[in-house]
Design a protein around this nucleic acid. Structure first.
Length: 291
DNA sequence: GTCCCGATGA
DNA sequence: TCATCGGGAC
């Protein structure tokens, strides 16, 4: 693990949420954005958000419509709504300061096992086994000699990573080690086309040593196609409403997608998620929530 | 076309 | 335990 720490110090990407001035709020915002969206697409939106809403109180006071617009096209817009809800909780329950207690973080909307521990480690310097899919893949390869990580076993996965971090002798380096494992998985030990020649621990990697055996464990469920999915329809509807300052007639929205049953399903799910609402002319027009 | 990614609630 | 939830990179 010492080599992972040294490698990270020399090779880490220069990301804005890693700067000290990002603070716990910047770490929280970035981690939520990064939950399902690649770094390259997060960067621009993150900078805009932090400039516009530099504290939880700023975000909590904003209209939901503006929050959803600023989320732009990062996908899974429920994350934006939950992040604002989390800001509300931080203001009302924690005096506007991002909490450092694990239980308090887990109680924030949109914050789960991974994000809570990432905030503690990266924002507060508290040693935690931060396990994302990158880390699970690195551990599967280096220690188990498996090409990929199989189904998540949260408790066992954390124990594995804890044991690795505990080989480092102080809290600060354990936090760096946690970040290092993630970075290694993100830019070297990639799911496809790993770059073992750049890996600081290639000589220890059981998967490489045994000649990259193909993965034989339980295979993850195949991802449904995006084209033609309900997700795509939701995205199309929300994109239209984001860009409109006035309620959009249902009759026009219907023209955006030919299959009416699927359109209605997508529209209903957006309503249920609280991302859109009906305009003054009930059920005949829709707008983004909180306009 | 295939893959990537964490939280949530059923 | 598993389906749902986006949109871009490859």
């Amino acid at each position: 693990m010492n080599r992972v720490v040294a490698w990270f110090e020399d090779n880490k990407r220069d990301l804005p949420w890693r700067a000290p001035e990002a603070g716990p709020w910047g770490v929280l915002v970035s981690e939520v954005m990064l939950q399902q969206t690649p770094v390259a697409r997060v960067l621009r939106v993150y900078e805009y958000w932090m400039a516009r809403w530099p504290s939880p109180a700023h975000l909590a006071e904003e209209s939901l419509a503006e929050v959803l617009r600023a989320w732009d096209r990062m996908g899974y817009p429920r994350r934006a709504k939950r992040l604002q809800e989390a800001a509300h909780v931080i203001v009302t329950e924690h005096g506007g300061v991002v909490p450092s207690q694990l239980e308090a973080l887990l109680a924030l909307p949109g914050v789960g096992d991974y994000t809570a521990r990432a905030i503690r480690c990266f924002a507060f310097g508290i040693a935690e086994a931060v396990v994302d899919t990158n880390v699970r893949r690195v551990v599967a390869r280096v220690q188990a000699g498996q090409g990929e990580a199989g189904p998540p076993r949260t408790v066992a996965d954390r124990a594995n990573v804890s044991a690795l971090l505990e080989t480092l002798d102080d809290t600060a380096s354990q936090c760096v080690g946690a970040a290092g494992l993630m970075e290694l998985g993100a830019i070297v030990c990639k799911a496809r086309a790993p770059e073992c020649s750049s890996c600081p621990i290639a000589d220890l990697c059981q998967w490489r040593i045994s000649g990259y055996p193909p993965y034989e464990g339980a295979t993850a469920a195949k991802q449904a196609r995006f084209e033609g999915s309900d997700r795509q329809v939701r995205g199309i509807i929300l994109r239209e409403l984001r860009s409109s300052d006035t309620p959009v007639p249902l009759s026009f929205l219907r023209t955006l997608w030919s299959e009416q049953e699927q359109f209605e399903r997508a529209l209903s799910s957006l309503l249920e998620d609280g991302l859109i609402e009906t305009g003054p002319d009930k059920s005949a027009e829709y707008r983004i929530s909180g306009s």
